[in-house]
Amino acid sequence: MKHRRRPARRSAARAVGVVALLVATLMTGRALDRVLPAADDAARGFERSGVVGEQLRLRYGTVEAGRPEGSTQIVTAGGTYLSTGVYVVVPVTFTAAHEPQSLSYAAIRDATGRVFEAGTQRNPFSMDGPAQPGVPRHTQVAVELPVDAVAGAQLVLALQPDDDNHRRDDVAVIDLGLTGADAQRWAAEEEGIRVRPATEGRG
């Protein structure tokens, strides 16, 4: 009788072993999910952090943000634009490194992660074509923000549009050094900030 029961015991042992193997596989898979980057994470750009007045070196050139200004309105070649919030205007200098390049993406990201893109008539940003290597191109980024988005805001600049996840390329993220006091002061400012076309040269 004992001889006949051994196969059953072996089958039971095998079943327990299979279950244990499946459990271990599932646990390993979950652990890898926590450790390995998701596909979206792997496709993101490489953020390079900087501050106002610093020359930030990127793969394709250098960028430098000047001191930001703020008001409830801006004046452009296309007209005057009023905001119920605040316009933040940041001067930007870009110098291409090895070949003619043009920044095509500019945005302001607030302390909570909200992103406000430039590049429209109401939120102007233009490099006016590719910059030649070694020749600085000066422009301005103007973005309309809610008042509560000013404190802790960062300027984000990239070679490629955000739709392409910046093609896993360098992305400049510049701390504008803004506070709640700046936001309140600018929200009461009615003098328009003039946003001028891009210019080229070292002057």
Score class of each variant (00 low, 15 high):
E54S: 05
P37K: 00
R57K: 08
Q140D: 01
F94Q: 10
A96C: 03
R14F: 04
E54F: 02
A149V: 11
R57G: 06
A13Q: 14
T80F: 03
G45P: 09
Q132K: 12
Q121P: 00
P37R: 01
A65F: 05
V88M: 07
T25V: 13
G79R: 03
R137I: 09
R48V: 15
L56W: 08
R122C: 00
V86H: 03
D40K: 09
A39R: 12
V16C: 08
Q55T: 11
G45H: 02
G79D: 07
Q121Y: 02
G61A: 06
R122E: 14
V63F: 11
F125I: 02
R67A: 13
L21G: 11
V51S: 14
Q73S: 15
G45C: 08
S71T: 09
A42Y: 01
D40P: 00
P146V: 04
P37W: 01
S71M: 08
D128T: 02
T95I: 09
Y60W: 07
A39C: 00
A142G: 07
A96L: 05
T120D: 08
F116V: 12
A43E: 13
G17D: 09
L22Y: 10
A8S: 14
R137A: 14
L58E: 05
Q140C: 00
H138V: 09
P100D: 08
P91G: 03
V35E: 05
V75H: 12
V51Q: 13
A24S: 09
D41T: 13
V51C: 00
R6W: 14
G53M: 04
A31N: 12
V135N: 00
L26Q: 12
P68N: 04
G29E: 12
I74W: 11
D41W: 04
G78A: 12
G45D: 08
Y81I: 07
G53S: 03
G70L: 04
